[in-house]
Write a protein that binds this DNA or RNA. Structure first.
Length: 434
RNA sequence: GCGGCCAUAGCUCAGUUGGUUAGAGCACAUGAUUGUGAUUCAUGGGGUCGCGGGUUCGAAUCCCGUUGGCCGCCCCA
């Protein structure tokens, strides 16, 4: 006999699971809308080339790809960014700026399963196109914070680490490093938190052991936790690009402070977000306890739309993954019990009573009430038990006595009070009792 | 792709040095007689013990393989 297993890393959503998922999506959607972001959606299956163009050939091993019946190389989307760049890029000159879009979708990566990571997962994505200034970052970090706070999470639960890839480039450039070396140093920075000095091994293999003075400066830069310290270290260098960058930092942090979000945001140059395509500010949200992987991440990617063959269009975006986020909510006891209780549960005496009940049930449902009833004849006691178990607030009783009088009995399940209602007035009686 | 641990009912798990028809709790269903939510009681369905092979008179148990899961490494766009 054949038995079928769920494909490894994939998830099934039984009603309780889907209720939790919907709860999360509903709040994300509501929050994004309140920030003036418009929702979009796009195909799950994309040309493989779309991802290669962005990240190179080696990316292929990490995604679900195959050749379709038309001979096309295709892949299930591993992220939203290239797709949204295409959507925006294709109409770049027609869309009103700034372009503030969000989506909630499922993504697929061919990876090993781990806590908070599967082969399919949902992400909330938000992006702003067409704005070069830190006002865009302000909006997105504000949205990110609110997307978590909407669930009752506070600054004691999570924080956002803010960094800047441009600043690293300018600073290391001012120290005399070429682009290749800068990238290698950033690779080390990315790993330093985890591996300590071993993080510089990659650099050493490429360029020889890192010079002690340089390493010291890198580590000192990594320690910086405030705009003041950043400024006093960098201003003396007299570099114009650095000065402009510092102005952006002041603006962004000032904006966030004005939004009352300073307590969520920390300057932390240890975040560099891989090496792929980020061009300026980058940020990641983490739980304060440091037990989970990143909750959200994002940054500026001013070159990507152009790289995909569309007009140059500056962009910033971030994504929140659903798995780690749900773990965090559960850890903090912020996942509510999501029961879908009916307003009214009907108790039905027998075949004739059922006919009378069906009419009332239909009217109540048409009026928008949630109504349920037993599909088979069951003893009265069982029906009341069922009404209680499903959490109905009212029981509407159709027995032979009531039928004879042309009424139904409405019972409040909390205080157990009952009263008789003419069948014609059932809808208004229920409305009054809820 | 690599390593460690694990796999018995829908769920949590027992199962003796290898020994007859494989167990409990919870959950589910039916009933305790047909008009009121609790507790209780009885009964029942449901497992080829993840799958395949091997050792043995005999395997849930021991061995090998495989698939899947958990955790870590690599990766994390």
């Amino acid at each position: 006999m054949a038995t079928f297993q769920t494909l490894p890393g994939f998830r099934e959503f039984y009603p309780e699971d889907l209720a939790r998922r919907n709860f999360i999506f509903r709040l994300w959607r509501q929050t994004a809308t309140s920030f003036g972001f418009a929702e979009y959606d796009a195909p799950v299956l994309e040309p493989l080339e779309l991802y290669k163009a962005k990240s190179g050939d080696e990316i292929e091993g990490q995604l679900f790809n195959f050749t379709d019946k038309g001979g096309r190389e295709v892949a299930l989307r591993p992220e939203m960014t290239p797709t949204v760049c295409r959507l925006v890029g294709a109409k770049a000159n027609a869309l009103k700026r700034p372009i503030k879009w969000f989506s909630i979708g499922e993504f697929y990566r061919y990876e090993r399963m781990q806590k908070g990571r599967g082969r399919c997962f949902f992400q909330f994505n938000a992006d702003i196109f067409g704005e070069t200034g830190p006002e865009a970052e302000t909006e997105l970090i504000g949205l990110l914070v609110q997307c978590l706070c909407s669930f009752g999470l506070t600054e004691q639960d999570f924080y956002v680490r803010l960094s800047d890839r441009n600043l690293w480039f300018y600073y290391l450039g001012a120290l005399g490093l070429d682009d290749e070396r800068i990238r290698a140093v950033l690779g080390a920075v990315d790993r330093y938190e985890k591996y300590g000095d071993d993080a510089f091994k990659g650099y050493a293999e490429q360029f020889g052991e890192i010079e002690a003075g340089l390493k010291g400066k890198v580590l000192a830069f990594l320690q910086i936790k405030s705009l003041g310290a950043l400024t006093s270290l960098l201003e003396p260098l007299g570099d114009e690009r650095i000065a402009a960058r510092l102005a952006d930092w002041r603006k962004l942090l000032g904006n966030l402070e004005a939004m009352g979000l300073s307590r969520f945001v920390e300057v932390d140059l240890g975040v560099v977000r891989g090496l792929a395509y980020y061009t300026g500010f980058v940020f990641e949200a983490f739980d304060r306890k440091g037990e989970l992987r990143a909750i959200a991440g994002g940054g500026r990617y001013n070159d990507l739309v152009g790289k995909l063959g569309y007009p140059e269009l500056p962009a910033v975006g971030f994504a929140i993954g659903d798995m780690t986020f749900a773990l965090l909510l559960e850890q903090r006891g912020l996942m509510p019990a999501l029961v879908q209780a009916p307003d009214v549960y009907c108790v039905i005496g027998g075949a004739d009573e059922r006919l009378a009940a069906l009419g009332a049930i239909q009217s109540l449902r048409a009026a928008g009430f949630r109504v349920d009833y037993p599909l088979k004849d069951v003893a009265f006691g069982k029906q009341f038990k069922a009404a209680s178990e499903v959490g109905a607030r009212l029981a509407l009783i159709f027995g032979s006595d009531e039928l004879a009088k042309g009424v139904a009995k409405l019972r409040d399940m909390n205080d157990r009070a009952e009263r008789e209602i003419p069948l014609a007035e059932v809808v208004s009686a229920v409305r009054d009792s809820l």
